[in-house]
């Protein structure tokens, strides 16, 4: 971030931290919903059956891996785009 004084940078960092916490909570609840929707469809039992539990574990695992990979590619593309000088992020 260009042209911010040290105290402005500190204020920005504090806001970013709050935003990150919020984003994490959103991500978490979306993940719960996705894995629940995709894995749990049988209501003849009260607790998760083995198959459902395994599915949920794989669902979370896959999500973490794919979001890591997407993040890597995103950083690369974003850096390339900023260098070429077009939208967004300038």
């Amino acid at each position: 971030m260009e042209g911010l004084t040290a105290s402005e940078q500190r204020e920005l960092a504090a806001r970013m931290e709050r935003k990150q916490l919020k984003e994490f909570m959103t991500m978490y609840s979306k993940l719960v919903q996705r894995c629940f929707d995709d894995c749990v469809n049988d209501f003849t039992t009260k607790s998760l059956i083995n198959r459902e539990e395994g599915c949920v574990m794989r669902c979370v695992d896959k999500y973490l891996k794919s979001s890591g990979r997407l993040n890597e590619r995103f950083q690369e593309q974003n850096a390339a785009m900023m260098q070429s000088g077009s939208l967004p992020g300038r």
Partner: peptide, 22 residues
């Protein structure tokens, strides 16, 4: 990034989760 994650996950990741790895 959030929008991209949502779209690409929907398009690329089948929902049967037969394995935890990509």
């Amino acid at each position: 990034f959030n929008r991209l994650t949502e779209s690409c996950t929907k398009k690329c990741i089948p929902t049967d989760y037969r394995e935890g790895d990509l």
